[in-house]
Design a protein around this nucleic acid. Structure first.
Lengths: 231, 231
DNA sequence: GCAATGGATTGATATAAGTCAAGGGGAAAT
DNA sequence: ATTTCCCCTTGACTTATATCAATCCATTGC
């Protein structure tokens, strides 16, 4: 983690949060003066659950995993994050603590912006406030979906859903390099790593996917969708 | 469901949302002119998941259950709601649909306020916008806790937690009338109603609670807390 | 008073999924 | 080249939890 800013300024940065687009020149300059870049190697922790949430964080490059640390060392992987995503968590406005951890998967470049600045802009710019509300809402909405998925689907459905999530929302391809370990896929789908292995094997036997240890190819996406929906 | 307003006006109502306290007289009058009261009998639906979210709803009296309708008719009960709670859900700012259902448990009096009005006030009153953000954040935060509880704890822990939730956050007593059926307790803790019965029986045998079909008395709260935390 | 209903309870059984233990393979370090 | 480490894989076994079927019990309606 080093500390020189790589991006010359917010006004030329296209990897930040869409909600910054509506800012006035002065507001953007306020953000720009109060931002700090840092870079992280794979597996390094960017946000630690429970620590004081003083900054909003945006990745400008790379991929990270967002996860909650649960009971007896068990993690729950919530999602993967790339650029253009606000990382802060609802804890900011509840107890001023991050309520999840974020760790780099690939090499990551990140931009830290003090929450005092964010709050100042919320107070002065109703459009930005509404954008912030929409962001919070969208994330809460996904949590609602996720809670249903994790509690009501069986392992096949949950795993199928994760595979589709990677294809459609992260790697934008049906043939992707699997950057997560079996353990991490398990933390995402709430299953033991051995179960992940077994069910990946079953899906492979049924010619629905091709699963090498470090890559996945979806062969029959329709069938995978059916499995994901039927649970 | 009938339609005369029982409460004379927002300025004298102390059962509404805390976030309305900071409104100017004009803003409050705007709300007051655009609100509609309705009353519901037990088991009647106040909000139906998936329907267009045109109104924010506040209970002024009574108790309701907030639940998601999941796969193959299975429900997930998220929480119980009384007065002073905003009911709308994150779907409002995502796809303009309610993402959960709300049904009356006791007789309920509710106040409907158009979301157009809410949005107008958000745009004009930064304090109100921040209050809205805090409300969203708090609910998202609870969902984060809930997802951990439901996925990582075993049945005993989940049930103990539900019993403590009723005592501490709903009925404010360690000896309360159980207004939910075993089925509904199951929907809240993600377990089959038979499992609820069995584990309530076990807790009773261990003299931790006293469980009549329609009432619960917590005898050993410390032990119940340990069970809830150990999972 | 008596059926009808909806919930509560119970025991027996089935199933899903986790755990444990062992072995395998590839990449990095020595 | 060999060791080390980490992850992946497999099979046997255990455990948690759901499902099914039957019964009980209290309330409501006729």
């Amino acid at each position: 983690m080093y500390s020189e800013n790589v991006i010359s300024g917010c006004e030329v940065c296209n990897r930040c949060w869409a909600n910054f687009k509506g800012l006035s020149a002065e507001e953007l300059e306020l953000v720009n003066r109060n931002r700090y870049e840092a870079s992280f190697n794979p597996s390094e922790i960017i946000i630690k659950q429970g620590s004081p949430s003083s900054n909003a964080i945006f990745l400008t490059s790379g991929l990270a995993k967002v996860y909650m640390e649960g009971y007896s060392g068990r993690n729950l992987l919530i999602n993967l994050a790339e650029h253009s995503t606000l990382l802060a968590g609802p804890g900011v406005h509840v107890n001023s603590r991050y309520c999840y951890s974020v760790a780099a998967i690939t090499h990551v470049q990140a931009c830290f912006i003090s929450f005092d600045v964010i709050r100042t802009i919320i107070a002065g710019n109703p459009g930005f406030a509404l954008g912030f509300i929409e962001d919070l809402s969208e994330k809460a909405f996904r949590m609602h979906q996720k809670i249903l998925n994790l509690t009501q689907k069986k392992m096949h459905g949950r795993l199928a859903e994760a595979l589709l999530y990677f294809a459609d929302e992260v790697f934008h391809s049906d043939d992707y390099e699997m950057l997560l370990t079996r353990q991490e896929i398990g933390e995402m789908t709430n299953m033991a790593k051995e179960s992940v292995v077994r069910i990946l094997g079953e899906l492979e036997n049924e010619k629905i996917i091709r699963a090498m240890p470090r890559s996945v190819k979806i062969l029959d996406k329709d069938k995978l969708r059916v499995i994901s929906e039927k649970g």
